[in-house]
Amino acid sequence: MLFAVIFTDKLGHGQLRAQYLEAHVRWVAQHQDSVLVAGSLRAHPEDVPKGGLWIVEAPSKAAVQELMTSDPFYTCGLRRNVEVLHWSKALERKVLV
């Protein structure tokens, strides 16, 4: 099953994000069999990210929630809110890099 995971970071925690960024990127790379797409979300390219978005392939919503609890951005307390949604892909062609 496919899921969209939307993360919202705690306000004013850009320094914490920067501190754990390298560990987070390594974690995502280690889990790319499940985390198919991952990236930060921001209003403008130069802004500090407000959160992130993942597309995850997993057998259940519970499996996605279990997976994300080992992400350094989660364990360091950066995340204010997390929403896990079932995602239905509309186009079959691969449009993401």
Rank of each mutant, 00 (worst) to 15 (best):
27 W>T: 13
97 V>K: 10
38 A>V: 09
91 L>G: 01
91 L>H: 04
13 H>N: 13
59 P>R: 04
48 V>L: 07
83 E>H: 05
72 P>W: 02
64 V>Y: 00
79 R>T: 06
4 A>L: 12
10 K>D: 09
95 V>R: 03
12 G>W: 08
52 G>D: 05
84 V>C: 02
91 L>T: 05
77 G>P: 03
23 A>D: 08
91 L>F: 06
87 W>L: 09
51 G>N: 02
23 A>M: 06
9 D>L: 06
3 F>L: 09
1 M>Y: 10
19 Q>Y: 10
47 D>V: 11
36 L>F: 12
64 V>C: 04
56 V>S: 04
15 Q>L: 09
46 E>A: 11
36 L>C: 12
50 K>E: 10
56 V>A: 04
71 D>R: 00
1 M>A: 12
76 C>D: 06
88 S>A: 04
49 P>C: 11
3 F>R: 00
30 Q>M: 15
43 A>Q: 13
21 L>S: 03
29 A>D: 15
13 H>A: 11
9 D>A: 11
56 V>G: 02
63 A>W: 00
91 L>D: 05
88 S>E: 08
37 V>Y: 08
40 S>T: 14
13 H>T: 13
33 D>L: 13
68 M>I: 14
92 E>W: 01
61 K>L: 14
2 L>H: 07
28 V>C: 12
78 L>H: 03
64 V>W: 01
70 S>M: 05
58 A>M: 05
96 L>N: 08
16 L>S: 08
92 E>C: 01
84 V>Q: 01
76 C>A: 09
30 Q>Y: 15
68 M>G: 07
73 F>E: 00
69 T>C: 05
32 Q>S: 15
55 I>Q: 02
89 K>L: 09
19 Q>V: 11
65 Q>P: 07
4 A>S: 11
33 D>M: 13
43 A>V: 15
60 S>A: 08
59 P>Y: 00
67 L>Y: 04
4 A>R: 04
33 D>Y: 11
2 L>N: 06
93 R>G: 01
74 Y>E: 06
78 L>W: 02
14 G>W: 13
89 K>C: 06
54 W>R: 03
51 G>D: 09
57 E>Q: 05
10 K>S: 10
18 A>C: 08
5 V>C: 08
8 T>P: 04
5 V>D: 02
28 V>N: 11
44 H>C: 09
11 L>T: 15
39 G>M: 14
5 V>E: 03
86 H>F: 11
46 E>T: 13
28 V>Q: 13
65 Q>H: 02
33 D>K: 14
24 H>E: 09
81 N>E: 13
59 P>A: 00
71 D>T: 01
21 L>Y: 05
48 V>W: 04
72 P>H: 00
7 F>K: 07
23 A>K: 06
81 N>A: 14
63 A>N: 00
85 L>T: 13
93 R>H: 03
31 H>N: 15
5 V>W: 01
16 L>F: 07
52 G>R: 02
59 P>S: 01
9 D>Y: 10
57 E>N: 01
67 L>T: 04
39 G>P: 12
63 A>K: 00
94 K>Q: 10
24 H>K: 09
63 A>D: 03
70 S>R: 05
3 F>G: 00
8 T>K: 12
84 V>L: 03
90 A>Y: 05
53 L>D: 09
32 Q>G: 13
